[in-house]
Every structure is written in structure tokens, then in C-alpha cells.
């Protein structure tokens, strides 16, 4: 099987001081960039498919020159080829552009399988997998948490809303986006890293791929502190008259008991309060009914 993996070059998502003191700009000094951890999961999954079914793994990144380091980290897991498509600018704006560049480069090799993370850890818009599938005119199975090779096919399990998992049988070619829990990337041996360092990484530009420069109507203004979590307001029922609606909205929707934020005292009373709090969060139900 020919397998392509997309690897984004991102600021270390676990770096403690990712954001500056204002909470609105990326820290400038000490910030470490790396291959997106979720894309490393995709790369590990690709290598496991190769080990089970044979084939090659090619890794792709659209990004600055440093992104080659991310490609080498992914290659060290057991990849064979790498290509970087030059893309400048912040990694926050160019989801569609990145997908078009990656798609054009990947299309040239007609892979059986294209793997990527469900969403990048920095921009996180989650556009790339579906846009890639659109570019390549392939089906997409998103959010995969289990992947097994069964003959020439794959058995996939993906996570859906509400904790349900869907099991699918898929015949390549297709695009798969992976969840972090799919697998744990191996720790590459020194030898594997040395080998990855010797792989020649191709550099391609939009021009090489025959993609025209498109003017963008979007301008990135910058980062802001996160929005406070908005309280969900339930829409008033249509049969309410204007005054009832008004009262309903002012009351913040259906009656809400504000739980005291601090509990202490006798244990049985605390247990009651705690369970009541969990129920308001939709937890602690028995057979679907509230405890």
C-alpha cells in the first residue's frame, strides 16, 4: 500500500508559557516547535499498516523550512519519503490553502491511504482532512480510534457523538483522520533517526504544483483571550406570548438552581449536593432516569 501522511509544524501544545502574559499572543522566546503530536499518531498508524501489509510511507508538510525537522521526526518512526511544500505565514489562517498544496502534491503519487490528525493542535479548524478528501475526490473516515488491516481492506472504528463508536470496513483509496487515542507513537531508536536524517526531502512550491496564487479575502487580526464559556440559553417555546418569553429569557431559561461552589458539612448532605450537581451536567443517571 502507498500511504501518505500529513504532518504539521506547530508550537509545542504542552509548552506551559504558550501564550504571552496578555493571554493573546504566542510567546516569542523559548517557544519550541515540533511535529504536531496528533500527526505523529497518524504517522505511527501508517507505519503499522506498512508493517502489516507492506508498502511505503511518504510524509508531507506544508510549512516553513523548519517543518523539515517535523518530517524527519515522522520519518524516524519508519517512513520512506518526505516532501515539504513551501507555505509562509502563520499556521492559523491557511487551512484551505495548506490542504490544496498538500492535495496537489499527494495527488501526484495516487496513494491508497492518506492519513492525518482530526485537527491541528494550534489552529485546530479541522478543515484539512475533508478539504484533502475533496481535492483528491476520495471518501473520508474521520475520528478513527482503531485501525486494523484485513486483507486488502481496513477495519476502522471511529468515535461519534455520545461515546458511540461506529465500525466500518473500508477499501482503499481513502482519507482517514485519526484521534490521539488511536495509538502511541514509538520511541525511535538512534539508528532509525540516523536513517531518517539521510532521507532526501523534496521541496515543492505552489508553482511547481501548478496551483495559481489566489488572493485571500481573509486577514488574520490576531489572538485574543478565549471567550468565556457561554451559558447555553434554551430557546423559549414558540407558543409563549411576548411577556412570557421576556420573563423566560430574563430568568436565564428554565429554572436553574445555582449550586453553591463550596461544599462542606455532614457527608450525606454533601453526597446529595454532589449528585445533584452531576445531574445538572447530565451525569449520574440510572437507566436513563435521574437518580
Amino acid at each position: 500500500m502507498r500511504i501518505a501522511v500529513c504532518v504539521k509544524w506547530v508550537p509545542d501544545p504542552d509548552y506551559p508559557a504558550l501564550l504571552g502574559a496578555d493571554g493573546a499572543t504566542l510567546a516569542s522566546d523559548g517557544l519550541v516547535f515540533m511535529a504536531d503530536p496528533i500527526d505523529m499518531v497518524a504517522a505511527e498508524a501508517a507505519v503499522r499498516v506498512k508493517e502489516a501489509a507492506g508498502g511505503t510511507v511518504a510524509v508531507y508538510s506544508a510549512g516553513p523550512a523548519d517543518a523539515e525537522k517535523g518530517l524527519r521526526a515522522a520519518l524516524a518512526l519508519g517512513g520512506d519519503e518526505g516532501a515539504r511544500i513551501t507555505l509562509d505565514g502563520s499556521g492559523f489562517s491557511g487551512g484551505v490553502r495548506a490542504a490544496r498544496l498538500l492535495g496537489a502534491a499527494i495527488a501526484k503519487t495516487s496513494p491508497d491511504l492518506v492519513l492525518c490528525g482530526v485537527q491541528s493542535s494550534d489552529s485546530g479548524s479541522g478543515i484539512v482532512p475533508a478539504a484533502l478528501a475533496g481535492m483528491l475526490r476520495l471518501p473520508l473516515v474521520s475520528g478513527v480510534v482503531r485501525m486494523e488491516v484485513r486483507g486488502g481492506e481496513l477495519e476502522l472504528e471511529r468515535r461519534m457523538e455520545g461515546g458511540r463508536h461506529e465500525v466500518l470496513r473500508a477499501r482503499p483509496p481513502l482519507v482517514i483522520s485519526v484521534q490521539p487515542s488511536l495509538c502511541q507513537p514509538r520511541y525511535p531508536a538512534l539508528l532509525a533517526r540516523r536513517k531518517a536524517d539521510r532521507v532526501a526531502i523534496q521541496t515543492l512550491s505552489a508553482g511547481d504544483l501548478g496551483l495559481p496564487e489566489v488572493s485571500s479575502g481573509l486577514q488574520t487580526l490576531g489572538l485574543r483571550p478565549p471567550r468565556p464559556r457561554t451559558a447555553r440559553l434554551v430557546a423559549p417555546a414558540p407558543e409563549m406570548d411576548a411577556r412570557e418569553r421576556y420573563r423566560f429569557i430574563l430568568a436565564g431559561g428554565p429554572a436553574q438552581n445555582r449550586t453553591p461552589s463550596r461544599l462542606s458539612g455532614p457527608v450525606p448532605a454533601m453526597v446529595d449536593e454532589l449528585l445533584r450537581f452531576l445531574q445538572t451536567q447530565g451525569v449520574a443517571t440510572v437507566n436513563g432516569a435521574a437518580v
Binding site: 501544545p13 492559523f92 489552529s123 485546530g124 487580526l221 478565549p226
Partner: peptide, 15 residues
């Protein structure tokens, strides 16, 4: 829109 896993909000301007 939210970014950085919800740690920040990205602001854009569309012409």
C-alpha cells in the same frame, strides 16, 4: 473562532 485547543480565540477580518 477558538484555537490552541480553546486556550485562545482567533480573530479574522473578511473583506
Amino acid at each position: 473562532r477558538a484555537c490552541l485547543g480553546g486556550k485562545a480565540q482567533l480573530e479574522l477580518c473578511w473583506d
